[in-house]
């Protein structure tokens, strides 16, 4: 489906009023390969909702869950709030960086994995915890992380 039609459908579904901007941005991002908002998508949204592009972009860059950069199929979000940070959060980030050979904020060359930090995801009872797309994973150890990545990679094969 072409981008314009997809965006228009989402806008129709969510409502065309300016207050729906954030909901629309999230939904378009969810339904876009690479989980991001392209320049083209932002322009369509700006035109349809009659909100200046500068503001659409301002809203998109204010919220940390929205990205204007292409991301991998698996978005790995590492919690770096205190309960996780002090329960091995640093280890989690280091392990992922080592295993994927990218830094936090980057995407693997095969566009499979993106590493990001996130603020508390409310999984402090299973710290250190991460989110991969909509799923939570907790009580992580280097071994667990290794096998988690293996499982995801196998699914791709």
């Amino acid at each position: 489906m072409d981008l314009k039609k997809k965006v228009l459908d989402i806008i129709k579904n969510k409502g065309e009023t300016p207050d729906k901007l954030l909901e629309i941005l999230l939904e378009v991002q969810n339904k876009t390969k690479g989980k991001y908002l392209s320049e083209e998508a932002l322009i369509i949204i700006s035109n349809e909702l009659k909100i200046p592009l500068s503001k659409v972009y301002g809203v998109a860059t204010f919220y940390s869950m929205i990205s204007t950069k292409k991301r991998g199929k698996y978005l790995i979000q590492i919690c770096n709030s205190s309960p996780c940070y002090l329960n091995g959060g640093k280890m989690v980030a280091k392990t992922f960086e080592k295993l994927l050979n990218i830094k936090v904020g980057e995407t693997t060359k095969d566009n499979l994995f993106t590493l990001e930090y996130t603020s508390c995801i409310g999984a402090c009872d299973i710290a250190p915890a991460i989110k991969i797309n909509d799923e939570y994973y907790g009580n992580l150890t280097p071994e667990k992380i290794k096998s988690l990545l293996n499982v995801l990679r196998e699914e791709e094969c």
């Binding site: 932002l42 500068s54 659409v56 972009y57 301002g58 860059t61």
Partner: peptide
């Protein structure tokens, strides 16, 4: 009513500039 510039990003990374 032009809207050429707006706040981009937040916190200390916030800048006032044109989009994109």
């Amino acid at each position: 009513g032009v809207g050429a510039i707006y706040n981009v990003n937040r916190s200390c990374e916030m800048e006032i500039r044109p989009p994109l």
